[in-house]
C-alpha cells in the first residue's frame, strides 16, 4: 500500500533536518503504529506525506500503490486515496461542515472521473455515518470545527475519513486531548473502517490508543529515523519502561 524509502526532509526556511532516512512499508489491510518521543519527526512525516508546504524533501520516495506521492499536489494525494487525520483540525469560519464534506467528496470523485453524488444520496450517507460517531445534525450545520470541543473535532476527522473512504489513513495523534469515552468513540469509528483493502498508520505518544486500535506492527521513531520495529508488545514495553531503554539500546 504505502512504501517509504530513505526519506530525508528538512525545513524549507531553515537548515534544520527533521527526517534522516525513514524506511517504512505498510501492506494492504495492515495497521502500523509509530511511537516516539517529542521532536522525533512523527508529525513531520505525516505532513510531508500529505503535502504540506514548508518542507523540502532532499532524498527518498513515498509510493502509494505504485504512485509517487511526493510529486503530487495535496488534493491529488487525497484523490489517490491518502487521508490525514490532523492532530489539530483546522477551524474554517464561514464554511458549513456539510458543504465542506460534500465539496471534498465530490472533488475526489471528479478527480477520479466518477459522477458527483446527489444531494439526497449524500445527505443519507452523512447522517448514517454521523450517527455512529454521535455527531448530531447541529454539528453538521456549524462551520467546520468552529466552536467544536477537542473530542468533537477528532470525531469530525473520523467522519471525514468515513465519507472519503481513503485507502491509506494516517492518524496524527488522534488521541491527544481525548477523554476515555471520546477515545473509545473515535477508536470504534476507526475500527469500523478496517478492512483488507485499507491500511492505517497511527501516530501516537501513548500506548493507550493502541489498546483500542490494535496494530499489527509498531515502530519506534527517534531523531528522524525508525530505530526499532516489532509487534504490539513493543508498545507495551514503551508504556512500562519509557523510551530511554530503547534509545540507549540502539545507541
Amino acid at each position: 500500500m504505502l512504501e517509504i524509502k530513505n526519506l530525508h526532509v528538512k525545513l524549507e526556511e531553515e537548515d534544520k533536518v527533521i527526517l534522516k532516512g525513514v524506511d517504512l512499508k505498510i501492506g494492504p489491510g495492515e495497521v502500523h503504529a509509530i511511537m516516539g518521543p517529542n521532536g522525533s519527526g512523527k508529525s513531520t512525516l505525516s505532513y510531508v506525506l500529505a503535502g504540506r508546504d514548508g518542507y523540502e524533501v532532499t532524498e527518498g520516495s513515498a509510493m502509494l500503490e505504485g504512485q509517487e506521492l511526493l510529486e503530487m499536489e495535496p488534493e491529488e494525494r487525497a484523490a489517490a486515496g491518502l487521508f490525514l487525520a490532523f492532530q489539530y483540525p483546522v477551524e474554517i469560519p464561514g464554511v458549513g461542515n456539510m458543504t465542506f464534506l460534500r465539496t471534498a467528496v465530490n472533488a475526489q470523485r471528479k478527480a477520479r472521473g466518477e459522477d458527483e453524488v446527489s444531494a439526497a444520496e449524500f445527505l443519507k450517507l452523512v447522517r448514517e455515518k454521523a450517527k455512529t460517531l454521535k455527531i448530531d445534525a447541529e454539528m453538521l450545520k456549524r462551520p467546520v470545527n468552529v466552536g467544536f470541543s477537542g473530542g468533537e473535532k477528532k470525531r469530525n476527522e473520523i467522519l471525514q475519513m468515513a465519507m472519503l473512504e481513503p485507502r491509506m489513513c494516517i492518524l496524527d495523534e488522534t488521541d491527544s486531548g481525548l477523554d476515555v469515552d471520546a477515545m473509545k468513540l473515535v477508536s470504534d469509528g476507526v475500527n469500523a473502517l478496517r478492512d483488507a483493502g485499507r491500511s492505517f498508520l497511527v501516530i501516537t505518544h501513548y500506548q493507550r490508543l493502541l489498546d483500542h486500535i490494535k496494530p499489527d506492527v509498531v515502530h519506534i521513531m527517534a531523531a528522524g529515523r525508525i530505530i526499532k520495529t516489532g509487534g504490539p508488545e513493543l508498545a507495551l514495553e514503551v508504556e512500562t519502561n519509557g523510551y530511554a531503554d530503547i534509545l540507549s539500546e540502539v545507541g
Binding site: 500529505a50 503535502g51 504540506r52 508546504d53 499536489e73 495535496p74 488534493e75 494525494r77 487525497a78 484523490a79 487521508f83 490525514l84 490532523f86 483540525p89 483546522v90 477551524e91 474554517i92 465542506f100 465539496t103 471534498a104 467528496v105 472533488a107 475526489q108 478527480a111 471525514q160 472519503l164
Partner: peptide
C-alpha cells in the same frame, strides 16, 4: 485552512 481543504481533495 487552504492546506486542510486541499488535503481533503479540494483543488487549490
Amino acid at each position: 485552512a487552504l492546506f486542510y481543504l486541499q488535503s481533503r481533495g479540494v483543488p487549490r
